[in-house]
Amino acid sequence: MIDVGRIWRSSAGTKAAMAVSGMILFGFTIVHLLGNLNMFLGREHMNGYATTLHAVPEVVYATRVVLLGALVVHVAAMIKLRGASNAARPVPYKVVTPVASTMYSRTMRVTGPIVLAFIVLHLLNLTFHGVGANALHPDFRLQADGTTPDAYHNLGTLLRLPLWGVFYLVANACLGFHLWHGAVAMFRSLGLSGDRQMATARMGATALTALVAGGNVIIAASILSRIIGQG
């Protein structure tokens, strides 16, 4: 039998768990972005998309369970790996001169928690209506059916507020940084060693990262600057 505990205990196994969970979360961000591009098509398209999503609650909840699971694994792996990393160098260097590591890889420890905080706030802003969380939205509304959120309005009104708008911009930039390193690293964590395959994977990962982070930033910026999401 596959000994999941043993795999988890090993550093490579934890990294693999991080890679797989990260891959799931990355995949979700792509779908999430594609859906949100409806903002550019106007209220009807955006709210129609929201209604379609909510049409089959089983799918919604199953997806949420998978995503939550992936998030828990991802965060748990982070906690374990960070503990191991700190323990591995109890005495720090006086002088540290990074050479090869990128801004993206070095800031994973910062961008990760920011993205996590963003996810929580984002859910409280726009998803968990009716559980006392509407306080995190200035004017949370539902569509005419009384159950599906008025996504176009909710997003538009939220991001028009400078504080939230800027926070979303910053958080999505962090998400971009995070994905940039994570999307490349996950292939090596899962054992992709060929130079040519790795080059291809790196190109693909870079393109998808640019798409997700760029797309999110453009949406947020467009709303903040009142190009879309009005009325």
């Binding site: 490579a12 990393s85 990074p98 050479v99 990128t102 890889s105 964590s189």
Partner: peptide, 10 residues
């Protein structure tokens, strides 16, 4: 007691 690899490339 070696740490995990984060693929910084250092």
């Amino acid at each position: 007691g070696f740490g995990p690899c984060s693929q910084h490339g250092e």
